[in-house]
Design a protein around this nucleic acid. Structure first.
Length: 801
RNA sequence: GCGGGUGUGGCGGAAUUGGCAGACGCGCUAGCCUUAGGAGCUAGUGUCACCGAUGUGCAGGUUCAAGUCCUGUCACCCGCACCA
């Protein structure tokens, strides 16, 4: 039989579509499985071969779970707000909604052509007002709880997108999306107080099954550190606080440093004798972006304040105050105490400005380099702390500070609040109104959704205002509170808004009264398995955990954590090992692969390409191996014979393969699952025939990987019903073993022979058989046997002298 | 600098967690079949001075036995980066 993949794939895709074969059931008594992949941004370029790597893997899991009797939810949708669409729309004079429609249609066609078992009845689209109504609703809840606030602050401004970026969207000082320069701009922005959830976001990681690198990356990003706030007096009478994790070294503090933006500097304008110098330094620092400031990490600069000194609270010593841009206003208190003996940055600074270095932890040579080891040192030169370990000193100094009201424990985070405003058209309008009298007022929930006005021009402005600001009839409204004339907020939400809760909507996508019903959320939540890219770890994944934790706190969702399990796939690189990109000319088009090899081959190839977690280069010649494999499988139909049980000579291999494939799918080791199926196929082919029982098992095991052709073979063989409704094969542990095995015989650890023995032979039996082998006998001839080992089913090792 | 990870044939990658290194696939070689197709089939394919030795980035160590464990070291990738 010829394997006509094009016809077969079209045929089954049509049947699945017509029958809604993969629609999740609303029967909440069944055991459920909710598998999720990141919904794509429907770009104009169409599907990338990277998308199917993730989608196929979870599709395989979903299909297997269905065969194992689970009610499976495997949904798909569109994260369709975003700049590329808007830019394309501007350039081509098509409305972004139209562009989105076209792109979605193309993506959908491509996804369907790959045979994914998505439940298309539950498709969501973040740009649909029925959807973003609830995105706006969640924003209002955040606002009501004080977690959304407006703040005038320096923000990251992409010079090309003409739009604000979140800290998470700035990579190496440039825009994550377009690579253009990011500058600091003072603007009034809506912010989300994700920092209030820092603790919960960290703690929640303990309860979920995320791959370790995801957890680590989120932990580092949140960046918790335990320390102490210490009050320093000054000769001017003012006090300021520093944050330190090493309060134990307080006696070694020989100067302090304020951030150039520290508010006390203004206050001290008259008292600082060298205020001109200070001002000049401040201005210099203000010109640099955060990135530039941190870029020039090596060479530390600063200015010592003249006329004011700080007072160390532990010993009332007067020490200098510096300003330096290596102290960040946005972390801690914007002020530090410097202990050059035990901090490398302080040490560098002290050397440059010739400041005293006082050793307070013995164990290093502080004149050569800072001694930062907390584990081995003993306190010295520290009055009542002398002789204590660092650990004990930390406790004691904290007690002492607390008693004297000079300091307290404090936990700090690197995480910053989330800049939530974007000055663009193609996003969810922020449902807020500004009234001269009432200030910012939220819309009434009954007025949601607040839809985007349908306009012709949505070009970004250069003055930092949203394109919506130009649309007077939309902007001008009345205050929901007092009824007076008022203006709408014209910024829109970032793309991350809609994707922060989309997985909830899939549970109950048409609900008019809530983002999803309680029952649906109870049943389907949490997502059992979520696979997605590492690049979203500190963006989408963190944001959506934040929203979900919040929704849990206000009683909207029944679980704290949205995702029980998170895995991540490696990138598919171009054939030359570089990242696929148009400019590199190494992009592979999925449509062409499907045309030339078929969707099943593409699926099998992408799963066989290598370790799922690692990046793998595309190989046009390797894909042929997958095609050959499927060709051979298809021709099994030509050698199909009767038989309702596995033949004895291949029975154990079949059971082993069932076990291997079953287990490997659960751990995403798709490459070895396919390898096992290839091996089994080779074994079966060598016998010249395959019986119906074997055939049924084989194509069922292969079904999640190559769903079209196995469905066809099922029909050709005349099995009952359709394969997608069949049962996953069972294996018996007892039948996974062979009666006889070949073992290696080593003499002094070197292999001298291979012998066949019964699988259940005892050590003595195996060893005597081994010695009977002529090569082994020759090797031990005339030598003293010191030790004899038998590792069941593996080897015998005879140690001689 | 800190954190995470990876080093195995010409290539992608396996190795039941201390037990026959290189499964499976690509590529390559030879032969067959076809009167050139980038098709199919069969056999071979880590390296070498081809008996036998040797081999998992490098150097040591533990062990009857090390890709796997320990110590040191090198290289590459990813993330964070003056976070006090």
């Amino acid at each position: 039989m010829k394997y006509n993949y094009t016809d077969i794939e079209k045929k089954w895709q049509q049947i699945w579509d017509d029958n809604k074969t993969f629609a999740a059931k609303n029967d909440y008594t069944l055991p459920k499985f909710y598998g999720l992949v990141e919904f794509p941004y429907p770009s104009g370029q169409g599907l990338h071969v990277g998308h199917p790597r993730s989608y196929t893997a979870i599709d395989i899991v979903a299909r297997k779970k269905r065969l194992q009797g689970f009610n499976v939810l495997y949904p798909m949708g569109w994260d369709a707000f975003g700049l590329p669409t808007e830019n394309f729309a501007i350039k081509n004079h098509i409305h972004p909604a139209e562009v989105t429609k076209m792109n979605v249609a193309n993506f959908k066609r491509q996804l369907k052509s790959l045979g994914f078992s998505f439940d298309w009845d539950r498709e969501v689209n973040t740009t649909d007002p029925d959807y973003y109504k609830w995105t706006q609703w969640i924003f209002l809840q955040l606002y009501k709880k004080g977690l959304a606030y407006k703040s005038q602050m320096a923000v990251n401004w992409c010079t090309s997108c003409k739009c604000v970026l979140a800290n998470e969207e700035v990579v190496n000082g440039v825009c994550e999306r377009c690579g253009s320069e990011v500058v600091q701009k003072e603007k009034s922005q809506w912010m989300l107080k994700i920092t209030d959830y820092a603790e919960k976001l960290l703690d929640g990681l303990e309860d979920v099954d995320f791959i370790e690198r995801v957890k680590t990356q989120q932990r580092n990003w949140i960046g918790r550190s335990y320390g102490t706030l210490v009050d320093f007096g000054t000769t001017s009478g003012d006090k300021f606080q520093v944050f330190t994790t090493r309060a134990d070294t307080l006696f070694g503090a020989t100067y302090t440093v304020l951030s150039p933006e520290h508010p006390l500097l203004d206050k001290w304008a008259d008292e600082i004798e060298n205020y001109d110098e200070v001002l000049a330094y401040k201005q210099e620092a203000a010109k640099k972006s955060d990135f530039e400031r941190t870029e020039l990490a090596k060479d530390k600069t600063g200015v010592m304040l003249k006329g004011i000194k700080a007072v160390n609270p532990v010993n009332n010593t007067e020490i200098p105050i510096f300003i330096s841009d290596y102290v960040l206003i946005s972390y801690g208190t914007g002020a530090i105490m410097a202990v050059p003996a035990h901090d490398t940055r302080d040490w560098d600074f002290a050397k440059k400005f010739d400041l005293p270095i006082i050793e307070v932890v013995a164990g290093g040579n502080v004149h050569e380099e800072a001694f930062t080891d907390c584990n081995t040192g003993v306190m010295v030169n520290s009055d009542f702390l002398n002789g204590l370990s660092v650990e004990d000193a930390k406790v004691k100094i904290q007690e002492w500070l607390k008693e004297k009201c000079l300091g307290e424990r404090k936990t700090n985070y690197k995480l910053r609040d989330w800049v939530f405003s974007r000055q663009r058209y193609w996003g969810e309008p922020i449902p807020m109104v500004y009234c001269e009298k009432c200030g910012y007022v939220p819309l009434n929930e009954s007025d949601l959704p607040l839809t985007l006005p349908n306009v012709d021009s949505y070009e970004p402005t250069d003055n930092g205002e949203s394109p919506l600001a130009k649309i007077d009839e939309w902007v001008n409204t009345t205050c929901p509170c007092c009824g007076a004339p008022a203006k709408r907020e014209t910024d829109t939400m970032p793309q991350w808004a809609g994707s922060s809760w989309y997985f909830l909507r899939y549970c109950d996508p048409n609900n008019k009264d809530a983002l999803a019903s309680k029952e649906a959320l109870e049943y389907w939540g949490p997502v059992d398995w979520y696979n997605g890219g590492m690049e979203h770890t500190t963006l989408h994944l963190l944001y959506s955990r934040f929203w979900h934790l919040f929704l849990y706190d206000i009683g909207v969702v029944p679980n704290k954590e949205p995702y029980a399990k998170r895995t991540s796939h490696g990138m598919i690189l171009g054939e030359n090992g570089e990242k696929m990109s148009k400019s590199r000319g190494n992009v592979v088009n999925p449509d062409e692969i499907i045309r030339d090899y078929g969707a099943d081959t593409m699926r099998v190839y992408e799963m066989f390409i290598g370790d799922f977690e690692k990046a793998a280069p595309w190989s046009q010649s390797s894909i042929k191996g997958s095609k050959r494999f499927l060709d051979k499988v298809f021709s099994l139909a030509d050698i199909l014979v009767d038989g309702d049980s596995y033949r004895a000579e291949i029975e154990s291999e079949i059971h082993k393969t069932i076990k291997k494939v079953t287990d490997d799918i659960e751990t995403l080791k798709m490459n070895t699952a396919i390898a096992a199926l290839m091996s089994l196929l080779n074994t079966i082919s060598a016998t010249g025939s395959i019986n119906r029982a074997e055939f049924k098992t084989f194509i069922t095991l292969l079904n999640p990987f190559a769903p079209h052709m196995t469905e066809e073979l099922w029909e050709v063989a005349g099995f009952d019903g359709m394969l997608n409704a069949a049962e996953w094969p069972q294996y018996e542990e007892a039948k996974c073993v062979d009666a006889a095995v070949e073992i290696a015989v080593q003499v002094n650890g070197k292999i001298r022979a291979r012998i066949n023995v019964a699988a259940d032979i005892d050590a003595a039996g195996a060893i005597s058989l081994a010695k009977a082998d002529s090569a082994v006998a020759a090797e031990i001839e005339g030598k003293t046997v010191i030790k004899e080992l038998y590792v069941p089913k593996r080897l015998v090792n005879i140690v001689v002298k």
